[in-house]
Design a protein around this nucleic acid. Structure first.
Lengths: 211, 211
DNA sequence: TGGGCGTGTTGACACTGGTAACATTCGGTC
DNA sequence: GACCGAATGTTACCAGTGTCAACACGCCCA
């Protein structure tokens, strides 16, 4: 029992969230996820073994961070889609939302798609669901454009549609990573990135338009 | 002094290489590069501190592996370019070589472009040189295609050329990673990957052709 | 009122990256 | 051929890590 008002109570209240927050903070500060669980616990003001009541593993903590990232990405893409109409505009919105998320959360994005996780197949169902859903949305847009004749793709040709989906995803994914890793342009500034994003996205769309 | 013929000599001969080999073996076996230096040393049949005579750091070992990877990638791309003529064919060759390398060496590729390294700018000059060179080659091909009118790009428009370069690189990079991570297609087989590679590369080229 | 269970703590273990002090061998010099 | 410094390898050690087991606390329900 502790009578001091400011002293921390024995039970934290929402330690799981606190640990996730600490870990995410370290991630965004350092850009790395090879921090020690002990440091995370220290930041949360808790003993080094407390995290094992909430995460079976260090890997489980990392995976939980990834899940929050996937959900944030999904939210952002959903919002972008809602405000757009027509295949071209929607595709553009998706591209900008996706790249924007990655560029603004570089460490998190790398964690989400890096090797930190036990292989994509080992991911929690939540994550797989988001990924599958993301692909479905993208496919829907492209299929829509194909049906209306906006894109030069035969909507009946399953494979052609798949190739377009994979191509589009590859482009935004690759661009995001190259930008994050500063491979693309070493003296990048926000403005430049935005402009580049717009132009790369436009190239993607041009590649889909009929000749 | 040791009179037994089979006993290991005190000095290894080429321990640096042996350590790199052990580490690379672990990398390809497990797909991860969070192995311990001590295990690498164990595999090389040497005491755990010996590696510090050849690599200042664990990170230095990882970086050295990355360097071998970059050089292998460069070699493969060079070979591909040599056998091709014309902008379209050359671009196709580059794409196939790049993706092929990544798909055949997934762990190495991820290490090369993952967060294992001290940020792209901290990389050894060798690596930076290879990356810069790679971009120059790609730019050369696209510029060539632009000049001959094969691609719908104004060769005088610096920015347009840059955008095309970034787009192309992003596409192959993203596709390679998505394939490695099995995000693209979860029941991929070599044949499927090859076919996909071909079609995605073709989409890239189509996107550059005049309308 | 009490006891059980979820939550947090302490203490321990094997292991890791890294350093320092010591041992061994190689290559060059007399 | 004997000698010696530099390069290379070894052993001993340190602080820090992930993880587990045993214990402590306190909320909630019978």
């Amino acid at each position: 029992m502790n009578t001091s008002a400011s002293a921390a109570p024995y039970h934290h209240g929402d330690l799981r969230r606190a640990l996730l927050d600490s870990a995410t903070a370290i991630l965004t500060e350092t850009g790395r996820w090879d921090f020690s669980l002990r440091e995370v616990a220290r930041r949360a003001g808790v003993s080094h073994a407390a995290s094992y009541r909430h995460f079976t593993d260090k890997e489980a903590l990392i995976a939980a961070i990834a899940v929050t990232g996937y959900e944030a990405l999904r939210a952002r893409m959903s919002a972008a889609i809602d405000g757009a109409s027509g295949a071209v505009e929607t595709l553009r919105a998706i591209g900008h939302a996706y790249i924007g998320f990655g560029v603004e959360n570089p460490a998190l994005y790398r964690l989400m798609f890096g090797q930190a996780l036990p292989g994509i197949e080992g991911l929690p169902p939540t994550v797989l669901a988001v990924l599958t859903e993301a692909r479905a949305v993208l496919r829907g847009v492209i299929l829509d454009g194909a049906r209306t004749g906006t894109f030069a793709i035969d909507p009946e040709d399953e494979q052609a549609v798949s190739v377009a989906v994979v191509t589009a995803w590859s482009l935004v994914h690759g661009f995001t990573l190259l930008t994050i890793d500063r491979v693309v342009d070493r003296e990048v500034r926000p403005r430049v990135i935005e402009a580049l994003t717009a132009r790369v996205t436009e190239r993607l769309i041009i590649g889909l338009l009929p000749t």
